[in-house]
């Protein structure tokens, strides 16, 4: 019940930001829409996300944002270099890396972060293994691959989500 109430308030706030007015008709419309959405989609909303309101987690989340943006920028320059290079220097393949993260939300964020960072794209996540398409494979050793791809994000995500 608390979870549904939390979702309802969150959706209502987002609605009010989108319409950018606090007149009675807008609020009534927002309440109706938020109520319908909570009713329909509450089950697929991950419950563990309410834990993120803890101040320490928020702090690490804010630390994670610039780190993440730095990797995104690097990955874009990397791809732009490969795209415009006359010979297209790629050595692609799908590698298998392990994650120690347990929660579903943390794994989702890890997979998304891997996709947006240099030369890697998450193809699938089965149990503890992530299958990652890597544009320029530098090693055939799973340990090294895990260290290069996963570790830089895992240490932050562990603090944020677990």
């Amino acid at each position: 019940m608390t979870k549904r109430f939390f979702e309802f308030i969150m959706l209502l706030i987002i609605w009010l930001i989108f319409v950018w007015s606090v007149q009675i008709p807008d609020i009534i419309a927002g309440v109706i829409v938020a109520f319908i959405i909570v009713l329909l989609f509450s089950d697929i909303f991950p419950a563990e996300i309410t834990r993120l309101l803890h101040p320490v987690r928020i702090f690490w989340g804010l630390v994670y944002i610039p780190v993440f943006f730095w990797y995104v920028l690097k990955s874009n320059l990397d791809v732009a270099y490969r795209v415009f290079h006359p010979e297209i220097p790629i050595r692609p393949g799908i590698v298998k890396v392990k994650t120690t993260l347990k929660s579903e939300v943390a794994r989702t964020f890890l997979a998304n972060s891997i996709t947006l960072t240099p030369g890697t794209l998450t193809v699938d996540c089965i149990e503890d293994n992530l299958y990652v398409h890597w544009i320029n494979i530098v090693s055939e050793d799973p340990e090294v691959e895990t260290r290069l791809i996963v570790d830089k994000f895992e240490k932050y995500l562990k603090k944020i989500f677990e």
Partner: peptide
């Protein structure tokens, strides 16, 4: 320019997002 669907996804996802 990239040869297969996975490499193409790499380019389009990263660059278009940023």
């Amino acid at each position: 320019r990239f040869p297969d669907i996975y490499n193409r996804l790499q380019a389009s996802t990263k660059c278009v997002t940023l």
